[in-house]
Write a protein that binds this DNA or RNA. Structure first.
Length: 308
DNA sequence: AACCAGGACACAA
DNA sequence: TTGTGTCATGGT
């Protein structure tokens, strides 16, 4: 244990961009402090700090048998080679630029329920607002987890069973708005076993997608987010407004507007065996480096004015 | 102060 | 199939 009541470990990681990965729209509970990125993985408080070629990992309790570290390693996507993944990207200008701009960005492997619930809350919300919602849900309905001495409290993301016992009004009070009945319905389906999140790990991606899409509030995009960010399905390719604009502008510049379905098909055949990774690189690239004006001015998806 | 946000859904044509 | 209005809330 160090001087601040936490147990310190390390994970070999190569260069790892914690901000891009933990604060880039995959997960919503990580906060940066002076000592590093703090969050909860499962029922464990964790603080991460990026060093030269490894990650410093601080835990609230000793990890005698290495189980905690193994879980965190998996969560961070360290059990696969980033270098090998990037080599499978097609050699085109947009992806080269995205790779250059996103060094050290990785895909996480989150817990399915937390990921699913978070993205049900995500529709038509900015990332900062999703973070607020997810934090409110955790504060009010999550179980407390152990934290280092002198550290403020922390809670796990609430279980499906706990959220299923909430009323729609209680969820609306967490700023969910029209998404409240969606989350309630999904929590109920998962709790009763109408949908088993465990069995989605086996079977084809399409089968898992169909199963997820039976849940209220879960369409193609949110299903693909869960498949990619929780189940590691690289053939999932979530197309949100940003990715849609990125694909249209970078791959069909000045051409007629491609429908969502067309972009979906293009992505499947163009980006190869790690399409999901490419998607996250494009998403992060256009958001972080091209920014908001780009989305306004060149948006081919922008709704045309009424009365015209 | 408008505009838009890691959409889904019911409904129209 | 493809296109629209609606839903709730607040950041920029």
């Amino acid at each position: 244990m160090n001087g601040h009541g936490a147990w310190e470990y390390r994970l070999e990681s190569g260069h790892y961009d914690l901000k891009a990965t933990l604060d880039g729209g995959q997960a919503f509970r990580w906060r940066e402090s002076a000592a590093g990125w703090e969050g909860v993985v499962g029922t464990r408080w964790v603080r991460l700090r990026s060093e030269e070629a490894h990650l410093g990992v601080a835990l609230a309790t000793a990890d005698a048998n290495g189980i905690a570290l193994a879980q965190i390693q998996r969560y961070l996507g360290l059990d696969h080679s980033l270098e090998a993944v990037l080599k499978t990207f097609p050699d085109d200008a947009p992806l080269r630029a995205a790779q250059e701009a996103c060094r050290g960005l990785r895909l996480l492997r989150q817990e399915p329920w937390e990921c699913l619930a978070s993205f049900i809350c995500s529709s038509t919300k900015q990332i900062v607002q999703i973070q607020q919602i997810v934090e409110l849900l955790s504060e009010r309905y999550g179980e407390p987890v152990e934290v280092p001495a002198g550290h403020g409290g922390a809670r796990a993301f609430p279980s499906a069973a706990r959220l299923a016992r909430c009323t729609e009004q209680e969820l609306r009070a967490c700023k969910l708005g029209f998404r409240a009945p969606y989350l309630l319905g999904a929590a109920t389906a998962v709790t009763t076993g109408a949908l088993s999140l465990e069995t989605l790990a086996s079977g084809s991606t399409q089968q898992a997608r169909d199963a997820l899409m039976t849940l209220p509030g879960v369409g193609r995009k949110i299903a693909d987010c869960v498949l990619l960010f929780a189940y590691g399905r690289q053939d999932a390719f979530p197309v949100d407004v940003w990715v849609q604009k990125a694909l249209q502008t970078l791959y069909f510049p000045g051409k007629r507007r491609r429908s969502l379905e067309e972009l979906q098909r293009f992505s499947q055949r163009h980006f190869g065996s790690n399409a999901g990774y490419a998607q996250q690189y494009l998403f992060h690239y256009v958001r972080a480096h091209l920014g908001r004006d780009w989305s306004r001015n060149q948006s081919p998806a922008r709704r045309r004015p009424r009365n015209l």
